[in-house]
Design a protein around this nucleic acid. Structure first.
Ligand SMILES: [Mn+2]
Ligand SMILES: [Mn+2]
Ligand SMILES: [Zn+2]
Ligand SMILES: [Zn+2]
Lengths: 132, 132
DNA sequence: AATCTTATTTATAACGATTCTAAAGAACTG
DNA sequence: CAGTTCTTTAGAATCGTTATAAATAAGATT
């Protein structure tokens, strides 16, 4: 399996559940955005496996910590994750409640002229809210 | 009182509780960011009034709907509100878990080159995460 | 001012996403 | 295999938020 080594290299044991979640998350042509509930349902369908919700949370958080997933800053009740871990920005469609990627190159260079003493910039994220 | 008319003009009855919350929120030189819990505590101290948590939620949401407060998109467990309702951006200090305003003029013009058919841009928000 | 009507407040219950717990099971090590 | 550590799991707990429904207050009508 192609994910076994990836997991081992991260110090994560390649369990059946983790490998299955890897398939759902990473075995796609396109990256995508998801919520935990969202993902749990997808797992149920894609595979006919029953992975406990706790394990889905554990795994997503583990993958996030290892940098295989990115948390997205949106103000909704549910947390969104992104399998696209490159630097990029987002549209948030307020009507459909969906995220859409914006490539860095589709946003002009962002200059932050204000500096905060003793602090470094870790990331710069643009969120563009859309309505009909 | 200076908030009575503001509330009436919005179709909100100027109740004792709303006027007190107005004092705490808007009777300041500087705008600020807050969470609901945060605000509830502030009310308890500032005034020696006991406003029920439900009323604080109701009022903040009413004020948000009227445009007197802005919800901020951050990925934390609690929702942040902003008494600064002008268009602006934010630093989020990951260590102190605090928001800091960035004036629009402190960010270069942001060009979104990608368009989504049938959708209008409602807002463009930049979130700059800071670390030590 | 008394009455009617509608909006608001409030305590409390309900909800739902997330986290915790602790026991059972699986993966690694020698 | 035996020992150790990690992982999974169901269910409970947590906690921010929302819903409920009865009491109260505000505005309108007489
Ligand atoms: Mn929560
Ligand atoms: Mn919630
Ligand atoms: Zn994305
Ligand atoms: Zn602000």
């Amino acid at each position: 399996m192609k994910y076994i080594e990836k997991l081992r290299n991260s110090g994560l044991r390649p369990t059946k559940q983790r490998l299955q979640i890897c398939e759902v998350l990473f075995n796609n042509k396109e990256t995508f955005h998801f919520t935990i509930n969202n993902l749990a349902k997808k797992i149920k369908k894609s595979l006919n496996a029953k992975i406990s919700l706790a394990t889905v949370y554990n795994t997503v958080h583990a993958f996030e910590k290892k940098g295989y997933l990115k948390k997205i800053s949106i103000n909704t009740d549910q947390t969104f994750f992104d399998t696209n871990t490159t630097d990029h920005h987002h549209f948030y469609d307020l009507n459909e409640e969906k995220l859409i990627d914006i490539k860095n190159s589709d946003v002009g260079p962002i200059k932050i002229l204000k500096k905060i003493e003793g602090k470094k910039i870790k990331s710069v994220e643009v969120l563009v809210k859309l309505e009909d």
